[in-house]
Amino acid sequence: MEMELQTAFTPWASLGGGVLIGLSAVMVMGLFGRIAGISGITKGFLSTLLPTPGTPRDRDWRLAFLLGLVASPLALMLVGGTATQSVPTNLFGMAVAGLLVGLGTALGSGCTSGHGVCGLARLSVRSLAAVVTFMAAGFVTVFVLRHFLGGA
């Protein structure tokens, strides 16, 4: 897999982004009584497209949340900011990674945002275990990629 290492020290942008993520998590919990984990929001939205018994009927806020994720970088660019993204060119590797992330999300009963931001804020022991697990897996992955597979 082709890798590109690009890091920048952006404390104010990072702080602002963290505040906005925290604010959105509080708003979703306060307004809808739901956890602002993207996997749960996406799964809930997709389940409303093919309704079955027990399907949540709260499609509108889920759609607004998902559209906000897409619209945010576009809005940033409209006001003169830049939104850069680099992705590997190995489509097979990206597909495998995406499937593994989806599998991990299903097995872990949530995603990094749900467990890391919302679960830890609620002092969930299950979320703490999930965060420790995915952080450890991330550390091991970076170590293996950099030191054994010749990555940057």
Rank of each mutant, 00 (worst) to 15 (best):
M1N: 07
M1R: 05
E2G: 09
T7K: 03
W12L: 13
G17M: 05
L20F: 14
I21L: 15
L23M: 14
L23H: 12
G30T: 10
L31V: 08
A36R: 01
G37S: 00
G37H: 01
S39T: 03
I41S: 07
T42F: 09
G44Y: 01
G44V: 01
F45Y: 12
L46Q: 02
L46S: 00
L49G: 06
T52G: 07
G54T: 03
G54C: 04
T55G: 05
D58A: 05
R59W: 14
R59Q: 10
R59C: 11
W61Q: 10
F65S: 13
L66A: 10
L67P: 03
S72N: 14
P73D: 12
L76E: 11
L76S: 10
V79G: 09
G80I: 02
G81V: 04
G81A: 14
A83Q: 05
A83R: 01
Q85G: 11
S86D: 09
P88E: 12
N90D: 15
N90E: 14
N90Y: 10
M94Y: 14
M94S: 12
A95W: 11
V96Y: 13
A97C: 01
G98P: 00
G98I: 01
G98H: 01
V101G: 09
A106W: 11
L107V: 06
G108F: 01
G110K: 01
T112G: 01
G114W: 00
V117T: 05
S124A: 11
S124N: 13
A129V: 09
A130K: 00
V131W: 04
V132A: 15
V132I: 14
T133H: 00
F134R: 03
F134T: 03
F134H: 03
M135L: 04
A137K: 02
V140K: 05
V142P: 02
F143T: 09
G150W: 00
